[in-house]
């Protein structure tokens, strides 16, 4: 990880929209999981809490959370 900034404050209860609104760079992280989810997460699960979204798509919550927290501002 090349990011020197502290991890972002993101909780599993936050919705996808809340997370992207607060940390714009996380959109790219969600997009990187579109393939695994089988559809566009930002299109189909924008209002779902992260925890429910990962559960619905069979994604690893901790892994997604780590990626989101460590995402770098571009």
């Amino acid at each position: 990880m090349s990011n020197n900034c502290p991890p972002l404050n993101i909780e599993p209860e936050m919705t996808v929209l809340d997370i992207i609104s607060a940390h714009r760079q996380t959109e790219a992280v969600f997009r990187s999981y579109d393939g695994a989810a089988g559809e566009c997460i930002c299109c189909k699960a924008l209002f779902e809490p992260l925890k429910e979204m990962t559960n619905r798509y069979g994604l690893d919550l901790e892994e997604v959370l780590t990626d989101l927290k460590n995402s770098e501002e571009t």
């Binding site: 996808v16 929209l17 992207i20 609104s21 959109e27 566009c40 930002c42 299109c43 924008l46």
Partner: peptide, 11 residues
């Protein structure tokens, strides 16, 4: 614009 941009602009 693709999701979530329209919602973000509305917000």
């Amino acid at each position: 614009l693709a999701c979530p941009e329209p919602v973000l602009r509305t917000k």
